[in-house]
Amino acid sequence: MIPVKFDYLAPTSVEEALSALGEHGDDAKILAGGQSLLPVLRMRLNAPEVVIDLGGIASLRGIRDDGDAIVIGAMTTHHDVRDHALVKEHALLISKAAAEVADSQIRHRGTFGGALAHADPAGDLGAPALALGAQFVIAGPGGTRTVEASDFFVDLFETAIGEDEILTEVRVPKHTGWGAHYEKFVRVAHQWPIVAVAATVKGSIDEARVGLTNMGSTPLRATATEQALAGASATEDGVRAAAELAAEGTNPPSDLNGAADYRQHLARVLTGRAVLKAAGA
């Protein structure tokens, strides 16, 4: 199907994009890679009057080193995030998860910022961003503010980004040398996970961060598991007790792909696998 008619704006700076957003308000929609928005427009689930394409804003693309963090521009594609040397060195978990998003063609277009702004609870990048304690840099009419990952994800498809704001970049604190694995459970290729677990560990095992995908309306951290993993040995017996805690405090959906209790079972099993693989065991 073809989208409903809209006007198209292609700003070349964040300022221009913000003033277009300010002018058109709720009638406007930001277009990043389009890999979630265009299907929505084509199915006519949404019909904005104005589409503001961020594709022409060069400053939003790319990845840089910023001392104790790496900074990923919102318009950097999943493909580029996956392969970037800085990401592999300092935030391997994000590279591993980006590799699991959709398929090759969609990774060439879809962007890191677009996926996070979309905030699909089944999206693959929220849990790793949360687990690594990412900070979201959001530009608006009054300037720029930074939001912690724990405050960024508000609900299903809802984030801290206001209607007159744009996500410009994401700062990911360096986890240099941490092992990482993204364990994604899917029924068919190139689709969203039924449940997925993002795990990254220091040593084997001094410290661990574990994020859960599709275990609630937002990405979640398995904090009980993280605490139990500190000082655990990277063996099947060593992680079992910690992985058993992974579903604590989760509230997963029940749908055609699985009931909530089945998802909780998956979260425990996949956490065990993800942690062991992250620790290289």
């Binding site: 198209y8 394409d53 969609i106």
Partner: peptide, 12 residues
């Protein structure tokens, strides 16, 4: 690079 041309606008 490969893209799905049903999921790209001509203007893009």
């Amino acid at each position: 690079t490969s893209v799905k041309s049903c999921n790209v606008l001509a203007v893009q």
